[in-house]
Nucleic acid binder design. Structure first.
Lengths: 158, 158
DNA sequence: TCCCAACGTTGGGCAGGCCAACGTTAACGA
DNA sequence: TCGTTAACGTTGGCCTGCCCAACGTTGGGA
């Protein structure tokens, strides 16, 4: 059997990468099988939860660059899952709106992702899964907010 | 405040990516400041723990492709942290050996990485850190071994 | 003996993440 | 009122990590 060095196996940062990698691969390929990409779900979820938003706002929420938002929005517009319309109140912005088909697609992806989580967390009990989510949430909340330094106090969301 | 969609925040696979990303970035940049890369540590650790090995064996242990091992070994040879010598017993292979300088470098990186873990896990108590390591180890052990399908029964290690 | 497998190496592709630039448009201060 | 600053969407590009295909070399088993 080919075991990784014990030094690595004890290293939280290594464990996180090692655990995240297969998860990421599985999610990506299952979504691909459903003609979707990882960020499609993020964007649709953001639109469903917070309502129509500008591309920049979407990028901030989902943690991706403006330039990458453009590509994702293009793909979703092609699939008619969202609509992009210029904002009459602020002609710099586009207003992105989720379509009924987009909502249906989102629901489908919800179920798909739930299945995937079950596969990924197979070796863990229900309690352990909750613990894991709790611990990871603490880490994410601790690291994400500042990122570099404090942002604008409360940016105009749309 | 710009919060991510709750759907994502509940999703273990998303949390793992989100937690792994800052960890990965921090490790990478701190190692870069010490003139090292992520896999330098992996390879040096493997050599220190298991002794001299072929490049293929190193790749299997550390989970990287043969072709990428070549580049990493080149870098480490340039830094005189390892030595690459042809295996007289099997002329297809190279025997990679860690040098005294390599061992010293490894010890330095050990300390550096310990600091980094402390930063990354700052919001967690000692107990919580142990729990996290335990849970992640379960996940990694469950997913890594098979990967695609069972490999050779017990490959020649060197 | 012949065929298959493993080795090291080269080359390249693909996706994710990030940054720089540009023209447009709003908002704010002098 | 005008001029500066900043946000917006968009294009283009770079770099890294990860993976695969091919090749010539070498060893082991049928």
């Amino acid at each position: 059997m080919e075991t990784a060095p014990a030094r690595l196996r004890r290293l939280p940062s290594w464990l996180m990468s090692q655990a995240a990698a297969p998860a990421s691969r599985l999610v990506t390929e299952r979504l691909a099988a459903a003609d979707a990409r990882r960020y499609h779900y993020s964007l649709l979820a953001a639109l469903d939860e917070f309502g129509p938003a500008s591309q920049a706002a979407l990028g901030r929420r989902c943690g991706l660059d403006r330039s990458d938002v453009v590509a994702m929005v293009n793909e979703l517009v092609d699939r008619e899952l969202i609509e992009r319309t210029p904002d009459p109140a602020d002609r710099r912005r586009n207003i992105i709106t989720i379509t009924p088909a987009g909502i249906r697609h989102l629901r489908r992806l919800d179920k798909l992702l739930a299945q995937i989580q079950d596969e990924l967390l197979a070796p863990l009990s229900a309690n352990e899964r909750d613990q894991l989510v709790r611990l990871l949430t603490q880490l994410v909340d601790h690291h994400h907010p500042s990122k570099g330094r404090s942002r604008e106090p409360c940016g105009p969301d749309l």
